[in-house]
Simulated scan of single mutants.
Amino acid sequence: MSPTHALSVSQSHVDFVQSVIECLRSISGTDTLQSLVQMLTSEMGFRYYALVDHNDIDPSNPDRVDIKDYPEPIAYKLFGKRHYRRDPVIRACLFAGSAFLWSDLSKIIQLDRRDHVSLEHGAREGLIEGITVPYTRLGECMGSCTFAGTRSSEHAGKYLGIAQTVGIFAFQAARRLLSPSRRLALTPRLHPRPRDCVILVGRGCSNKEIARALSLAPRTVDGYLTEARQQFGARDRTELVVSAVLAGEIGLHELRRQPE
């Protein structure tokens, strides 16, 4: 088979994708959006879907993107109890440049025992293989579109490109419908000095090391980090750093250790 033949795409396929994009761009209601995403999920051979913001997953926030059909136990654990910051799929979104298969998670992040337990729990609830599409926009928190609930990685892999296209345009539609007045740049939660402390936490520094690096008293560093955890609702240092990155307040490049 020649490369030209292998790369050829039928016009009907192109027309289908284009019609989906046009529909998502012009859609005018969240109910219609949900019905369309549900239909596309089924057409691709998946059972579940989720379009969610990775920050401010809070029922009191009317602007959050939260359109999903997930098994209730998983939805409660991830979003109700706000365990999403430790979820391996959510964490992988920080490092993946485009849509990825869940079976490729170990190629994107290092999976620990808790991650394997989480994935096994999801599999028991029907979340076996999936595709997640990260969504990022400068000045805004991260989000993602996920299609999950098929057993075959080979089957899912065939839809990686379509999922990427549908996921991005679906998430853009959700943001447009749910937060029409959302500003391009959200007001930062972290002031400069606390932000410096969080960055150094992300580089693996202890509070004493942070105090020496920033010429601050250890008590001041403790206070800054306690306040930052309260602002993000983070229970520990790991959740604090992940929350700050997901919220778009700290870039991944800032977490790399600088040469001595």
Rank of each mutant, 00 (worst) to 15 (best):
R25Y: 06
F169C: 08
I210H: 02
F16D: 04
E249Q: 07
M44F: 03
C197F: 02
G45N: 04
R113Y: 13
V198C: 07
P134N: 11
S181Y: 10
R151H: 15
S2G: 15
R86Q: 14
V242G: 03
N207R: 07
I67V: 13
D58M: 04
K68A: 13
E239S: 03
Y49C: 04
D56Y: 09
L101M: 08
G157C: 06
A234I: 04
L252Y: 13
C145K: 00
Y70I: 09
P218N: 13
M142A: 05
P88I: 02
F100P: 11
R137H: 03
M39R: 11
A163G: 08
G161R: 01
I131C: 07
S12E: 05
V166A: 09
H253E: 14
F147R: 01
L252E: 10
C205P: 03
L160S: 03
P218C: 05
L36G: 06
I131D: 03
R195F: 13
S98H: 15
S153L: 14
A50T: 05
Y159L: 13
A50V: 06
R219S: 10
E154C: 11
V166G: 07
G130T: 01
R91H: 07
L252T: 11
S42Q: 14
A6R: 06
S206Y: 06
L216W: 06
G233Y: 01
L40G: 03
D63L: 09
P180D: 05
R151Y: 14
Q172G: 06
L40D: 05
L127C: 13
G161P: 02
T220H: 06
L186N: 12
K107T: 10
I57L: 12
I131G: 01
H253I: 01
L255I: 08
D112Q: 01
L138M: 09
P194W: 01
A50I: 01
R219T: 02
R114M: 12
R91Y: 04
G223S: 12
L7H: 00
E72N: 11
V17Y: 04
E239W: 02
L127M: 13
W102E: 12
V201E: 05
D66L: 10
E260C: 10
N61R: 05
S60E: 12
S106T: 10
S2L: 09
S8H: 12
F232Y: 09
S98D: 15
C93E: 15
C197W: 04
E154P: 04
F16A: 14
T136Q: 11
R47W: 07
A156L: 15
A92K: 03
A99L: 02
V245C: 14
E140S: 13
H191I: 02
S243L: 00
A228D: 04
L33T: 08
P73Y: 10
I57M: 11
R182I: 13
L190V: 00
V89K: 12
V221D: 05
P259N: 10
G233M: 00
G223I: 02
Q38H: 11
S19G: 10
G223V: 03
D87N: 15
D115A: 07
Y49V: 08
Q172F: 09
R176E: 07
S26D: 12
E22H: 14
V65C: 03
L111Y: 10
R114V: 07
V201K: 02
S153K: 01
I67L: 13
G149T: 01
C23A: 15
V17R: 00
V117Q: 11
L51F: 08
S26I: 13
K68M: 02
L160R: 15
V14P: 02
T30E: 11
L184K: 15
